[in-house]
Simulated scan of single mutants.
Amino acid sequence: MNRFLSNATNRIDTKGRVSVPAAFRSVLTRLDVSELYCLQDFVFPAISVGGPELLDRYESQIEALDPFSEEANRLSLLVHGGGVFAKLDAEGRMMVTDFIRSFTGITKEVVFVGRGRYFQLWDPETFEATASKARQERTANGVASA
């Protein structure tokens, strides 16, 4: 499968690195992703992580707009100003940088959350609260589980 599914929590080591879950590393390998594009999510306090195609997808949206429009400028501000590239080390770890920590509130542990074609980095407590709220809202709207 070439999708990021499920979630896993890993501890940040003393050097500020966290191991990417093996299942996620397998997907990255199958997709031949060696450089990760990390983007501050537009809605949640989470970092979205994917290969260069994630950046390409956003840049295609920007290019379809009038380059002088406010919408194009706002989207570029978020996509380019709110994004960085990262790499995994030989042991499959990534650095949890200040860029990640300040936006997410992550301190000691990271929840890796599959989002299909990309995954996200979350603070554990924030993820649990957000997922619980999403379940409650879905149930309140009368939508049954599949």
Rank of each mutant, 00 (worst) to 15 (best):
M1H: 11
M1N: 12
R3I: 03
L5D: 02
L5Y: 05
T9F: 07
R11N: 12
I12D: 01
D13K: 13
D13C: 12
T14C: 05
G16C: 09
V20F: 13
V20T: 08
A22T: 07
A23Q: 13
V27E: 01
L28A: 14
S34E: 06
Y37T: 01
D41G: 06
D41T: 08
F42K: 14
V43R: 14
I47T: 15
I47M: 14
S48K: 15
V49F: 06
G50V: 08
G51D: 03
E53F: 05
E53H: 09
L54H: 06
L54E: 13
S60W: 00
Q61M: 02
I62M: 03
F68Q: 05
S69T: 08
L75N: 02
S76V: 06
L77A: 14
G81N: 04
V84A: 04
L88M: 14
D89W: 15
G92T: 00
M94K: 07
F99W: 01
I100H: 10
F103W: 15
G105L: 01
T107P: 00
K108E: 09
K108T: 08
E109D: 15
V111D: 09
F112A: 06
R115N: 10
D123R: 02
D123L: 02
E125N: 07
T126N: 11
E128W: 06
R135T: 00
R135F: 09
R138W: 08
T139C: 03
G142W: 03
A146R: 07
